[in-house]
Design a protein around this nucleic acid. Structure first.
Lengths: 223, 223
DNA sequence: GCTCGATTTGACCATTTGGTCAGGTTTTCT
DNA sequence: AGAAAACCTGACCAAATGGTCAAATCGAGC
């Protein structure tokens, strides 16, 4: 029982953890569907299955809740960012990075939408992240791309604009999934379709910058 | 003066035309910055320089005003769509289309943001456009791409996913311009930078699908 | 200068919504 | 068991907001 007490003091109680999880999950959906202003704490509470006053017991203000949601998204993004560095070979690195970002768009479309909404509205909540973490991550990766160019491993390309193309395209499958579904006959992309989309993005990017896959590579998925 | 009277009856009076124009311009900005729910008719009226009650004299409801704004965006989009068909050569057609879409992102970032917001929130207002105009335009252009593939003018590629990549990337320069500006040292892209971004997108896409520019072409910018 | 429709606007209202609070219940610890 | 802490919630409130309206003003034609 000493362990139990220890648990209560170091980590959150089980009920608190569960309620916060439910609220954050509901909030991510509602914020994604309706934006910050469009979302109401009442809607979030209802979807989380508890009264509004209870929600405000755990998260004092709507903005505090929103900030937590956005931070969650950002951490997922950072996770994907690491896959860029797992290999120094441009083909391997970009394939892994694009694949990971596509997977995130499929697994967490709501999170991506919240992020998009935030940027669209000039990032009132996460401007500091943009100016610190995102900026430093980006410039260091651009340096990697520049090195690839200098070493002749890819064709000359501006690193920033290459990254923007990758971000835009991969996140499009989350942010604009409603449009994609509509053009797909009102049906979400099947696993096979999504896999083809992913391969299409990877192939266009790699070929687009003249990154020739090593013929002996383990990721030999060229059609 | 008969002409003046005629004018009042056939077209809107000058004051009406001017007020509607000012309101629509203000509405596009405010809806882009704050979303539908986040925007208030008071904010729009203030930016247009007239009292809220006057705004409601011209546009009875916030939703009617919003619909007008979205329709305006959609017409700009249709305009760009035509540039896809001006030439049957894949290099020419795609270069023109991408360039046009990039130019629109630079000239009408607010409009693009309103569109993005609308899709993000499942297109409550323009779902019918998606299912009619956008769907038919897309499928006919996919047919063109398929033909290019069949004729061996470009490498095999899924037309839908190629279009999504183009849409995503070009619109990213409008929808995410705040993020881009932040990564650019809190400054908007200069004309030269934007031109380089445009060329980067064009080059990656063309190379990505193996569309070899005619060596005699005027766009010969291969490094 | 009078009329009539178009335009303008301050004041107002009903509804929504973020957030509070007092009092109650449950859980945890000794 | 009993106290303390954590948790729960119906009722409530102040502010914001979309939209209304009646009265005032303007402008063109007679």
């Amino acid at each position: 029982m000493a362990a139990k007490q220890q648990a209560r003091q170091t980590q959150k109680s089980a009920v608190r953890a569960e309620n916060e999880r439910a609220i954050l999950a509901a909030a991510e959906e509602v914020f994604a569907e309706s934006g910050f202003r469009g979302a109401t704490t009442g809607m979030i509470a209802e979807r989380a299955g508890l009264p509004k006053a209870n929600l405000h017991y755990y998260f004092p203000t709507k903005e505090a809740l929103y900030r937590k949601v956005v931070e969650h998204i950002f951490n997922i993004w950072l996770d994907a960012a690491n896959s860029f560095d797992e290999n120094d070979d441009p083909v391997e690195a970009l394939t892994a990075y694009i694949s990971k970002k596509m997977d995130i768009s499929r697994a967490h479309p709501m999170g991506s939408k919240v992020w998009a909404n935030e940027i669209l509205h000039k990032a009132p909540v996460i401007q500091d992240y943009l100016e610190t973490t995102l900026r430093s991550w980006t410039s260091s990766r651009v340096a990697v791309i520049d090195r690839w160019v200098a070493e002749g491993r890819i064709a000359p390309v501006n690193g920033e604009y290459l990254l923007y193309l990758i971000w835009a395209t991969t996140q499009h499958y989350a942010d604009f999934n409603h449009q994609i579904d509509t053009l797909n006959g009102d049906a979400p992309l099947s696993d096979a379709q999504f896999e083809e989309a992913k391969q299409t993005v990877v192939r266009i990017v790699l070929a687009g910058i003249g990154a020739v896959p090593a013929t002996a590579g383990g990721e030999g998925r060229e059609a």
